[in-house]
Computed example of a mutant assay.
Amino acid sequence: MGNVPKISVIMSTYNEETKELSSAIDSILQQSYTDFEFIIIIDNPNNKNLLSTVEKYAEMDNRIHIISNKKNMGLAASLNIGLQEANGELIARMDADDISAKDRFERQIAHFLNHPSTDILSTNCFYIDEDGKLIGKKSEIPTTKEAIEKILPIGSSIIHPSVMGKKVAFLKMKGYRKLETAEDYDLWLRMLSAGIIIRSLPDYLLYYRIRKNSMTKSNVYRQIMTDIFIREDYKKRIKDKSDVFSEKKYKKFITNNKQKQKFNYYYERFTLGVEKIQKNKFSLTGYGDVLSSLLMNKLVRYMFKMLLSYKVMVKKACGE
């Protein structure tokens, strides 16, 4: 392969704290598997701290290649730029506020050597808080091609910043689409309908940062509507054997202020009910809030149904 690296690591940074960004970069540079290039896209040209931090690392390690967007382009567009610039046979994703285990690449490379049919490979993860403190871990995830194919249309167990995959698989799909959220979920379902093989390692090889107040009511509504759109798009693709995605149609689908206001009201009532039940499992008002929200709002009902179905299917796949 000459000087061509085996892996191209792609990471976009926008507004991360310097400490978080440094931890993410360090975790990649200190990997036990060293044959990679590290492409870092600066998606906030006005944030001089980001550029300064990355430039200092680039001076110390020539595996780092910096791309600075002239304006904020969003995650999907930034990752697509990284894909086009990548020289590696494999693409490794990383987020600028997470931490990779030191042997992450080594274990993923070993899987590709033993299972050459794999196109995309995710791992499991620990959860850390904003201070980097370990606060838990994700439960077992489906790992086989068959289980993931069955479960993915219901919900995703693929942890985006832990993914390593063949570059040809990403390029076959023409990279990420411009969505307001869940760009990765859309990509995995497009890959699934194209026959691309996705597997996961059960190993906990990523420390995924959880932020307080990361999901506002507005974000939850946007997430649910985007998920519905992505799943419906997937079903149409399977049925019609063609892709008719339209960014205009997507924007229209998720824009309904009256529906959004109604959902926000019942979603807040639902979450308050759950909190009451967690504090007191005999809370009648808690159960009343949950049940009335499920009965009165189709989106809350949809959210609950899909989450329950996903959990049941994952438990079954994992033999629990």
Rank of each mutant, 00 (worst) to 15 (best):
Q259T: 14
F245A: 01
K248H: 03
K276G: 08
L291T: 07
M306R: 14
E275H: 14
F245C: 02
R301C: 05
G273K: 03
K252L: 04
S242E: 13
L294C: 13
K252N: 09
K258M: 05
Q278A: 08
Y265P: 00
D289F: 12
E275A: 14
R301D: 04
R301G: 01
Y310S: 13
T255F: 06
I254D: 02
Y302V: 00
F253Y: 13
F245W: 04
Y287P: 05
Y287W: 08
I254M: 04
Y250N: 03
E247Q: 12
E275Y: 09
K251P: 04
L272V: 02
D289W: 08
Y250S: 01
S309H: 11
N297G: 08
E275T: 09
L284E: 05
G286D: 01
E268T: 13
V244H: 15
T255L: 08
I238R: 15
M306F: 14
K260R: 15
D289C: 11
K279R: 15
F270E: 01
F245E: 00
I277K: 01
N297L: 09
N256G: 10
S283A: 06
L272R: 07
N264A: 14
V300R: 04
E268G: 14
V274C: 07
K276M: 13
Y265F: 15
E268H: 14
L294H: 11
K262Y: 15
I277F: 01
E275Q: 14
K239Y: 11
M306T: 15
V290H: 06
D243C: 00
L308N: 09
Y302D: 06
L284H: 10
S292V: 07
E247T: 12
R269H: 03
V244P: 08
S283Q: 07
V274A: 09
F253I: 00
K260C: 06
S242T: 15
S242Y: 12
K241D: 09
Q261E: 15
Y302T: 01
M303L: 13
Q259V: 13
Y267P: 01
F304E: 12
Q261V: 03
Y250C: 02
L291K: 03
N297V: 10
F245L: 02
S246E: 07
S309R: 13
K249P: 03
E247I: 08
L307I: 12
S283I: 06
I277P: 00
L291N: 11
I254E: 04
V274H: 10
S292I: 05
F282L: 13
L291Y: 06
T271P: 00
K252C: 05
F270S: 05
V244N: 14
T255G: 05
T255Q: 12
K249T: 03
T271C: 02
Y310F: 11
